[in-house]
Design a protein around this nucleic acid. Structure first.
Lengths: 111, 111
DNA sequence: CAAATAGTTAACCAGATGGTTAAATATTCT
DNA sequence: AGAATATTTAACCATCTGGTTAACTATTTG
């Protein structure tokens, strides 16, 4: 799940599409316009996002309305947040690392 | 920047490597052991992570010590967090959406 | 019905990705 | 010096990715 989510987010076009969707649901042509590429290209991006569960599609006649789906984003946020423990406690970790790995003149200070 | 970060995070092997690194810095062989793949494969993964700025490498003789670098993760978290506004206010958005789309009398708006 | 509109599917292409094995490069150990 | 260890580089392969154009399906409109 995270695989597809992160892979989907790795493309700037797709992130822009999501940004637009966050400001209101849009149909394919509408989402395509600001992107200097063909419609099929956008269509593909939308399918990637859909497969990643980042948007849901509803058809109204010939128009496909896209709707942002936040669940995968939440999951991604959760994953990344686990590393907050690390980057907020990084000095402690560094100390621990220095102590454990290199017994060379144990200077364990905090900065 | 986000491109590379998210792309790097899209691979489970790389996420596992980061998880190990978050628990202490490790050298290549050490990081490779739990992954059922060749050393060069792991080496490649490490380079991807390095290029994405997610880790820093220090050489002590022939041993390369890897160290988790949190900045890109922070940036990624920041990006994802922007969508919290959306998924926490999703009901309002939904209401807005319903109002705009369904009660409309066939106007071809360029919203 | 015919034409316009919305969107997808198909076929193709160049380049990236993720893996392999074999060989090369440093560095450390005896 | 020679062997072992840590890691990278090279060459190769299959598959995925992101784009294209052309053709197709489906729906709305005149």
């Amino acid at each position: 799940m995270l695989n597809r989510t992160f892979a989907a987010l790795a493309d700037p076009t797709r992130r822009r599409i999501l940004a637009h969707l966050a400001r209101g649901d849009k149909c394919v042509t509408h989402l395509a316009r600001p992107h200097a590429m063909s419609l099929p290209a956008v269509s593909k991006h939308l399918r990637v996002l859909e497969k990643a569960g980042l948007l849901r599609r509803r058809r109204y006649g010939r128009v496909h309305e896209m709707k942002l789906e936040a669940k995968p984003l939440k999951q991604a946020a959760q994953w990344v947040e686990e590393y907050r423990k690390f980057w907020e406690g990084s000095l402690d970790r560094l100390a621990e690392y220095l102590e454990k790995t290199h017994k060379r003149t144990g200077k364990k200070g905090k900065n």
